[in-house]
Design a protein around this nucleic acid. Structure first.
Length: 442
RNA sequence: GCUGGGGUCGCCUAGUCUGGUAGGGCGCUGACCUGCUAAGUCAGUGGGUGAAAGCCCGCGUGGGUUCAAAUCCCACCCCCAGCGCCA
């Protein structure tokens, strides 16, 4: 959320940003107009209150001297009523202004590419040696995974759904019966594999000095409003009936709320957290997309990186989060590419975002497995999270960043599809064997 | 869920009964003093607005009563103790 002060002083920054995003710039004029109205109402109200306070003081004096003050009261009876009606008017204007401000997107980083949809995201680098369908053109290769050199001509590549059903690793039909579409029962080795992935990721972040956190899985509305944009409320977040509680769509949200309304010590920054939690998502805006399997589901487990840092460090921290996420997929031996997410696909909250897209041989496509965002001060302003050198010094807003480390369902899909063998079995990535206790499924 | 106690400036605390400018201590910042350090003295130390003087707001949150609310009334939230229920 931009402060009205900044918009007032330099409205063109916001105008240009909205233009880049293809959004209506008229809202800026509306903001400026409401701001003017608010300020003049505030002045009027202040002088009314001043008048009241003056008289109140006189009444108090008179009373302490034992003088009669009933005439004074008569004169000013009307002031409180005027104040009240003006407060209501001001409240309405402020409410309107505030809701517009809360709806504004973050200011884009200058390196974000222009574009309309995910198709315009810009690939930045590739990793891995992929298995591909014979008819697909080979678009990337490197030598880091020479051991996966199969005889592609005789390899019947399956997607994760067929692999899962074949080895009884999940039951989707019964999940649909019990809970509806986009739910799943995990079964047998896949249950263990999921736990192994979680533990694998946690160990990595423990080694890196991240603070491991298992957060609340439900949070107050105030947290969600601080962390997300309005659209997420509609399309993503489940509400608990009759309570001020929302099921978290990612551990990012309770981790961002952790320091809400606090002033952090500058010397303690950056604070790096690794949260592990289930995630709940309505997926309301994605009807018809990825309806089969466990790629797009209402519930999954995820390890999430979250960082609070000084503004001057956030770009560096952003690269670092990406590197951490890459490290995980490199260690798992999953081929992937990194894309710089374009203006049209970025969303309101992030100033800049990288996605890691794993190669899924079953789909013959790169698909998103990691989303790595620099939210700059968008969340910290809304959640009121600041930092300073010492008490008494001025406090500034921190920058917050978040990145998937590993979302279990998508990581499992990537493993199933990339580690399937010509004989129909599925190998377990070497780094996971010590956690699973077995090295092959099937 | 019930009963009782509590929530006041960065931290601690007074004020609440009996409505009338939110006071003190600690910490922090600055000035003075000092051979250095400590001590001491003075000032500053929530937010908004303003060039400034000033003005407005602020005592968990939201309402109400009143010329005037930290103080009285109503509702709610959170913390502590005890009881109840419970994986």
């Amino acid at each position: 959320m931009m402060w009205i002060k900044e918009i007032r002083e330099n409205p063109n920054v916001l105008r240009e940003d909205l233009k880049k995003r293809g959004q209506d710039m008229k809202v800026v004029d509306e903001i400026l107009e409401l701001d003017k109205k608010r300020s003049s109402l505030q002045k009027e109200l202040d002088s009314l209150r001043h008048k009241r306070n003056e008289v109140t003081k006189k009444v108090a004096e008179a009373k302490s001297k034992g003088e009669d003050f009933s005439n004074m009261l008569h004169e000013i009876k009307e002031i409180p009523k005027e104040i009240k009606s003006m407060e209501e008017e001001l409240g309405d204007v402020e409410k309107k202004l505030n809701s517009i401000l809360m709806g504004l997107p973050n200011i884009l980083d200058e390196s974000v590419p222009l574009g309309e949809s995910d198709e315009d995201n810009v690939p930045m680098k590739f990793f891995g040696h992929a298995i591909v369908r014979k008819e697909d053109a080979q678009r990337f290769i490197d030598a880091s995974r020479g051991e996966m050199d199969y005889d592609i001509a005789n390899f019947k590549i399956l997607d994760h759904i067929d692999i899962g059903l074949k080895h009884d690793l999940f039951d989707l039909d019964r999940a649909a019966k019990v809970s509806g579409a986009r739910f799943y029962y995990l079964k047998n080795e896949l249950v263990i594999l999921e736990q192994a992935l979680i533990r694998f990721a946690l160990d990595i972040f423990r080694d890196k000095g991240f603070i491991l956190v298992e957060p609340p899985f439900m949070v107050h509305r105030a947290v969600e409003e601080g962390v997300t944009s309005f659209k997420d409320f509609e399309d993503v977040i489940y509400k608990v009936d009759g309570e001020d509680l929302y099921m978290i769509p990612t551990a990012e949200h309770p981790l961002a709320g952790y320091y809400m309304n606090e002033v952090l010590n500058e010397d303690g920054l950056p604070i790096r957290l690794a949260g592990v939690s289930p995630c709940f998502r309505k997926e309301a805006g994605s009807h018809g997309k990825d309806t089969k399997g466990i790629f797009r589901v209402h519930q999954f487990n995820k390890i999430e990186q979250f960082v609070y840092c000084k503004p001057e460090d956030s770009k560096k921290e952003h690269e670092r989060l990406l590197a951490n996420a890459e490290e995980i997929f490199q260690k798992l031996g999953i081929p992937y590419r990194v894309v710089n997410v374009c203006t049209g696909d970025l969303g309101s909250v992030a100033s800049k975002k990288y996605d890691i897209e794993a190669w899924l041989p079953g789909q013959g496509k790169f698909r998103e497995v990691v989303s790595c965002s620099n939210c700059t001060d968008y969340q910290s302003r809304r959640l009121n999270i600041r930092y300073r050198k010492a008490p008494g010094q001025p406090a500034k807003y921190v920058h917050t960043l978040n990145s998937t480390a590993l979302a279990t369902t998508r990581a499992m899909i990537a493993i199933l599809e990339n580690y399937q063998q010509p004989d129909g079995t599925v190998r377990i990535p070497d780094v996971l064997v010590k956690y699973t206790g077995f090295d092959v499924i099937g």
